[in-house]
Design a binder for these strands. Structure first.
Lengths: 365, 365
DNA sequence: ATGAAAGCGCTAACAA
DNA sequence: TTGTTAGCGCTTTCAT
């Protein structure tokens, strides 16, 4: 026998389909049918049932419904931090697309801890989320990757899907969906833009060293350098973090050390904002003395003065696509071509006011 | 008979406690006991069960568990927009506190539409969320308020709680919890600060006119004006929206119209950022020509140049308190004093660089 | 320490 | 068009 009384402090049992049925003088099946409006019910009956529902303040129990075989209509999204605009915009896309499909969104924040990420994937699986979306770069740790792959497989076995949003695949054999963006290409274009303007010594600033996002951006940057025959200099690569504080601090240090450069490639716009501050405090003018670029094209890029040249990443669209790619088998009509499970979105450089041609620079070189 | 096959495309039934029990040679009760580690189980038995769980890739079904009477361990939060830092910081607090208690967070965005808000409250009730937190100012529409009150009552009847976070109560009789902050007081302090610096004509800029948040801030502003005997001037009250775009646009218009003022009280920091931009473009210097203040103390306030004087609102803490106040009956030990169900947090002015004494101003008056 | 079995609230197959 | 009823997967009481 179940253990709970089914009554609350007031002795008021919360109402169930059975209560509604009794009050309306119909069967539970009929109540279910008016609830789900997926089956013909006589108008008069329907009204009686709806009246009973009103009077009892009845609210259907989604757990019971899910247990009876109906989708829980939930998608899960796992991000580093909801406050970071990179994640926030993706989360917004996920929420909007989920909402459009009548789904609710479970949101978790890992604060950068892979173990928390794995734990959250599990919790969302327990809740039988229709899809679990993990967002943003990942570390290349083997044990972690294997474990995530295992969970992806288990999710898949339960008819759900792990979606990789902005991070590399888990391997050919692992059943996942994924949304990618051209990270390397954007970085290439950005550095190429700088090179074209005559800059040869470009400082690469920020981004956690182990992260796939950093790897890809740095790879694009290096490829452009190489292509133009600019000589690489490890002193010009200063990864670290994706924070404003890091950008400001490391920029100041680099200035103090007297490392020579005429342009700064910040790993993202937030880092660029920090760098801009340090530059300003050191009396270095952007773009007259030093050119500065960022990445992501989040609002701060337009709000900075000078406005920041950066790479546009379609963050909100990535979020939307993440839920689409995971759910199209469930929602769309079956005559559509079978989904590939991978969508790749483009990036493009947005030229604003923070880059000037090398020729106009003074000092620092 | 249930209608679904219980098998997926591969004919692989997903495993259940029964499968685990069979494989481990124990009963489902025993499996449940090792799952919940709330009851003594022989070490050897436990190991066999855990092995079976591993081998089958078994993941407990939270719906079944919830239906059997265990809390779903979910809290719901409803915000305007996850990207807006005001909401994002509160959401972060909610997520962290929920997570601390082993709960997951359902997040919905209303995009400012009260009807969507009501619909989301219902959906979260269906999912039997332990608490449903509605965040931010509300409109004073009676039909809407009544409906929300009704839903609060129904939630309460199911042992859950509607939490009002940063908005006025729904009435004495309506069972809700709430987290308030001293909105009026912060506005009072801010305008008083301006007045003390010799400003007499203060432009109030932004904030949706119908919103409780705007009402409270405006009320504090007016009270300070009155107290200091500054004469009110309706031309100096320019509500509208909480966006950067509004701040920039309306600021430019006001400048064009030649309305006289020496200080601007922006309804929040985002509006202040927009106003700052318009001011800059018009060649009006902050704070030399015009003083500027904001509200909320979100990061942009520190990032602006000059750094923005504003009112600090403990956003993340509000989020944390929202889940605490709703859940302390469930989680805390019963000997604690009974919760009041209302927590009120203070605000304080943060003086930075965007205000100068009236004496140093030139022009505009 | 373990097992048997009822029941949580709902949906849908089947019967009428 | 409506009713009857099995069963979704789990927890817990009660018995052993």
């Amino acid at each position: 026998m179940g253990r709970q009384s089914g009554t609350d402090a007031d002795g008021q049992r919360r109402s169930t389909v059975t209560d509604v049925a009794r009050r309306a003088g119909v069967s539970t099946a009929t109540v279910s049918r008016v609830l789900n409006r997926n089956y013909p019910v006589a108008a008069a009956t329907r009204e009686r049932v709806e009246k009973a529902i009103q009077e009892l303040g009845y609210v259907v129990n989604a757990h019971a419904r899910a247990l009876a075989g109906v989708s829980g209509r939930t998608v899960g999204i796992i991000v580093n931090d909801v406050v970071d605009p990179f994640y926030a915009y993706i989360a917004r896309g996920v929420e909007r697309e989920a909402s459009r499909g009548g789904r609710l969104c479970l949101v978790c924040c890992t604060q950068g801890d892979p173990q928390r990420e794995l734990a959250f994937v599990e919790l969302m699986h327990e809740r039988r989320a229709d899809a679990v979306i993990v967002v943003g770069g990942s570390v290349a740790d083997r044990a972690y990757t294997d474990e995530l792959a295992r969970r992806a497989t288990e999710l898949d076995a339960d008819g759900s899907k792990l979606v990789l949003c902005g991070r590399p695949p888990l391997g050919e054999r692992v059943p996942t969906a994924s949304v990618e963006y051209d990270n390397e290409g954007g970085a290439f274009a950005l550095t190429d833009h700088l090179l074209t303007q005559g800059h040869e010594r470009v400082l690469y600033l920020g981004g956690p060293p182990g992260l796939s996002t950093t790897r890809d951006r740095l790879a694009g940057h290096r490829r452009a350098l190489e292509l133009r025959g600019a000589e690489p200099d490890s002193a010009l690569e200063q990864p670290g973090a994706f924070s404003r504080a890091f950008g400001a601090r490391r920029m100041a240090e680099v200035l103090r050390q007297g490392i020579r450069f005429t342009a700064v490639f910040a790993a993202n716009d937030i880092v660029a904002a920090g760098a801009a501050q340090a530059l300003e405090e050191a009396g270095v003018r952007v773009p007259q003395d030093v050119s500065l670029v960022g990445y992501d094209d989040v609002p701060v890029a337009q709000e900075m003065r000078p406005r920041l040249t950066t790479v546009h990443v379609p963050l909100e669209e990535m979020g939307r696509q993440a839920v689409r790619v995971a759910l199209r088998d469930e929602d769309e009509d079956p005559w559509r071509e079978p989904a590939t499970g991978v969508v790749r979105l483009g990036t493009h450089i947005v030229v604003r006011d923070s880059v000037a041609p090398r020729g106009t620079h003074r000092g620092r070189m």
